[in-house]
């Protein structure tokens, strides 16, 4: 009998934390189901790009994805934008408290009417800031052109800091930073390292202001149609690969930072608690502004689970 094929498409390289997590899932799934399931990986947007993968999943052209959480806002589930709120999570535990708790499950529930089932949250670490000049205080952001991904929260965040957000395709980012079309960007260390952003930036600030995570999602119809035993085996595979992906994200980020330091091209600055408090104060209006989009109850539930305390 021909195996059940799961096409797992994602937009990053195979050697990134997400790529490795996907690879681990493939191995586990095929092993646990005794070859009844075959997982085909399509990294690097080979099959579907950032902008179309969600529709492709809904159509059933592809069965499994791991988009970043920011992609669910445009899908119509704006509650997911809560994950982009600056300084919401103080550490990884605080993030896991949200995703592993009731809120994480509730948010996944909201995807079901869209024909999508959420299986797991994959952690990818905290965002730091980079630029060609030191970014210590909020005032340092004044007039800086900062590249962001399409996101209403990130847009508001850069504006609140006094910077000009620039939405720009990732493919153009390296050269844009090199020539100065944009002055800086934000992201996780592992991306800064693999995409060689550190070659074209002089300063990085360990602000940990944002958090990057992915959701492993499947086409709901496909998932519900699987034989129950296979579904259980796949769930176990997801669970194990999630533990693996989360662990690897944190080691990769650490390794990336070491690599960036070793390159000698970048000055890495860790802001003082007072400076962070100043950033937080400047960014609280963003939380307020997003209430109308994300919903007050969702934000409050996230505050509670994450143990968020408003800056004084």
């Amino acid at each position: 009998q021909a195996p059940i094929v799961i096409k797992f498409s994602h937009v990053v390289a195979p050697d990134t934390p997400k790529g490795k997590g996907a690879q681990r899932f493939k191995e586990l799934a095929e092993q646990k189901t005794g070859g009844k399931v075959k997982v085909e990986l399509y990294p690097n947007s080979q099959l579907y790009k950032d902008k179309e993968e969600m529709e492709a999943l809904q159509l059933g052209s592809v069965q499994m994805l791991a988009p970043s959480l920011a992609k669910f806002g445009p899908l119509g589930v704006k509650e997911f934008e809560v994950f982009d709120l600056p300084f919401l999570f103080k550490d990884t535990d605080s993030f896991r408290a949200v995703t592993d708790g009731q809120l994480g499950a509730d948010l996944f529930k909201k995807l079901e009417p869209k024909g999508i089932k959420g299986l797991a949250y994959w952690d990818n670490g905290f965002h730091i800031m980079s630029a060609n000049k030191p970014l210590h205080n909020v005032a340092d952001f004044k007039g800086m052109k900062m590249r962001i991904q399409s996101s209403k929260v990130l847009d508001a965040q850069m504006r609140a800091l006094g910077a000009i957000p620039q939405v720009m395709a990732f493919s153009e980012l390296y050269q844009a930073l090199q020539t100065g079309v944009v002055d800086g960007t934000e992201g996780v260390p592992s991306n800064f390292y693999t995409q060689k952003i550190f070659e074209v930036q002089k300063h990085m600030t360990m602000s940990n202001h944002g958090h990057l995570a992915y959701a492993v999602i499947v086409n709901k119809k496909f998932w519900d149609g699987l034989p129950a035993d296979i579904r259980t085996q796949l769930e176990a595979a997801i669970k194990e690969s999630t533990t693996y992906a989360n662990a690897i994200a944190s080691t990769e980020n650490g390794r990336a930072l070491e690599g960036i330091k070793a390159s000698g091209r970048v000055t890495i600055y860790t802001p003082t608690p007072a400076e962070i408090n100043e950033w937080k104060k400047a960014l609280m209006p963003v939380h307020k502004e997003m209430e109308s989009r994300v919903g007050k109850t969702t934000i409050e539930a996230a505050y509670k689970a994450a143990g968020f305390v408003a800056p004084k």
Binding site: M54, E55, G73, P74, L75, G76, P113, S150
Partner: peptide, 14 residues
């Protein structure tokens, strides 16, 4: 209707 979902929006212009 419950089973007919609202479509997505474009990310920037919505």
């Amino acid at each position: 209707r419950e089973d007919v979902f609202e479509g997505p929006t474009t990310p920037d212009l919505e």
